[in-house]
């Protein structure tokens, strides 16, 4: 009895392990490598980071990152190492320091500066415009009518 039952059960356990198949997953090291690699530029490519690039140098740089992660270096240490070898160029974005603040702040300065100027200008136009109301444009009247009809029906 025992034997009859045991054979199929054993088979069930044996089959999956027969091919040594396993569930593979990323390790913490893999994740950290990715996180760092995404912030470093592949120097022989264009605006592409070493994580996404297929270039051999990018591959070697990833390996260099991995080695350092395994050695227990921190993200900042690893980034600093690459920075010491390749300069600002290897960072995917300009470091926030010195003249680079120009590019980081320019969009917002333009937006607020331009906004303030535009606001003042429009305000000037509004005050200079005589309060006499010319008849509203054609499609506006039809819009009004539609709105009125809507309201009437409610």
């Amino acid at each position: 009895m025992f034997r009859l039952f045991s054979i199929p059960i054993l088979l069930c356990f044996v089959i999956p392990t027969a091919g040594l198949a396993e569930v593979v997953d990323e390790t913490e090291i893999d994740q950290k490598v990715r996180e760092i690699a995404k912030t470093l530029r592949c120097t022989v490519c264009q605006t592409e980071n070493i994580w996404e690039s297929g270039a051999p140098l990018a591959h070697q740089m990833r390996e260099a990152v991995r080695e350092r992660v395994i050695q227990g270096q921190s993200t900042e240490e690893i980034r600093a190492y690459f920075h010491s070898r390749y300069g600002d160029y290897i960072m995917m974005e300009p470091p926030k320091q010195g003249v680079n603040w120009l590019i980081w702040l320019a969009p917002f300065l333009l937006l607020f500066g331009g906004g303030a100027l535009l606001w003042r200008e429009v305000k000037g136009w509004v005050t200079r415009t005589p309060p006499s109301q010319p008849p509203p444009a054609l499609d506006e009247t039809s819009r009004r009518r539609i709105e009125r009809e809507l309201n009437d029906n409610q």
Binding site: T39, R41, T47, N49, G87, D88, Y89, I90, M91, M92, E93, P94, N100, I103, W104
Partner: peptide, 10 residues
Amino acid sequence: GAKVTVGPPY
């Protein structure tokens, strides 16, 4: 004379 990268993070 320096070189910088302006990439997606920016």
